[in-house]
């Protein structure tokens, strides 16, 4: 016991600074043993880097135009009203929500079916299909803009949100499917078999036994799909030329590329763009990490 303590203390000469690290011996786990300042100092420096930009946009959104104060006081909501009503962000918001939710449902549904097949069956083209899924990761959506545009023009889907929803879904699918098949593989097959023996068919067994266990994984995958669709810019920019069909990122870009940028409106628009994503994120954060550690890296 004594030697253990000794070996622990020696490798950290910085202790001399007197960091308050006399912790009870039940916390002896070495990976847990970093002096407090080694945690809080870099963490706070990084937090400044992370939070100042957020504060900055909040500041610009809330202080009156032309103000140079570093606190948003007197506070005003004029920028929000302007962006929401005059710059059509109300419409963009609606379009973005529609695109995001539709992509989420389509991606999760299709990936769930495919992921189940990959996890539970051996079939002839399985290896080839898996390889194709991986290969798609190297296919840049940005570089396929022109042929995609031609396809959607052929399908008469230019200027309809459907084109963006399909394009987003297609590029979300491969990774979602790989992740979901990993999650399903983590659920013992014997659980399903037991349900069959009890008289369930495959679908009911899946619904009752497997689906509840997939919850964290599905939440991670679904929110990924939503956030991607919500954030994605290029497809919406290319496929939707009609002002009333555009999404929030395109609206932000319009604000930014104006000759003289209205910084207050840009900031308010940015916050409108951020709110749903931040909410989703706050909600899923716990599941995200468990979801990933359950399936992602093991593939």
């Amino acid at each position: 016991m004594i030697t253990k303590e000794a070996t622990e203390i020696t490798p950290v000469p910085v202790r001399v600074t007197g960091a308050p690290d006399r912790r009870p011996s039940r916390h002896r786990r070495a990976w847990d043993e970093a002096p407090r300042w080694q945690i809080y100092l870099p963490l706070s420096i990084y937090l400044v880097f992370t939070l100042v930009p957020f504060y900055w946009i909040l500041l610009f959104a809330l202080r009156p135009a032309g103000s140079t104060s570093l606190v948003p006081w007197p506070m005003t909501f004029e920028h929000f009203e302007k962006v929401w009503n005059e710059r059509d962000f109300a419409v963009y918001f609606q379009n973005s929500v529609l695109t995001g939710v539709a992509t989420l449902l389509l991606t999760t549904g299709v990936a769930l079916a495919g992921g189940y097949a990959l996890a539970r069956f051996d079939f002839r083209i399985k290896r080839g299909f898996m390889l194709a899924l991986l290969c798609t990761q190297f296919v840049p959506g940005a570089l396929l803009l022109v042929p995609l545009f031609q396809i959607f023009a052929e399908l008469k889907m230019i200027n309809s949100l459907g084109s963006v929803i399909i394009a987003e879904t297609v590029f979300q699918l491969p990774l979602s499917m790989i992740l979901i098949s990993g999650f399903i593989r983590n659920v013992p097959y014997s659980l399903e078999e037991a349900a069959w023996v009890d008289g369930c068919n495959r679908l009911t067994a899946f619904r009752i036994v497997v689906l509840p266990l997939l919850r964290p994984g599905l939440i991670a995958v679904g929110s990924f799909a939503f956030v991607h669709a919500w954030n994605h810019f290029l497809f919406a920019l290319m496929f939707l030329s009609d002002q009333t069909k555009q999404t929030i990122p395109v609206g932000l870009n319009t604000l930014m590329s104006a000759d003289s940028v209205d910084l207050g409106a840009l900031a308010a628009g940015g916050i409108i763009a951020a709110v749903p994503v931040v909410l989703v994120f706050a909600f899923i954060q716990k599941w995200l990490i468990t979801g990933f550690s359950a399936g992602a890296v093991k593939g």
Binding site: W56, I57, L263
Partner: peptide, 25 residues
């Protein structure tokens, strides 16, 4: 700490641009 550190993860490229346009103007 985790939540704050991870928070820019979900921010889009365009929104990132908007924020840094404000910072750099």
């Amino acid at each position: 700490g985790r939540a704050l550190v991870f928070s820019p993860w979900a921010v889009s490229g365009v929104l990132t641009s908007a924020i840094w346009v404000l910072l750099y103007n």
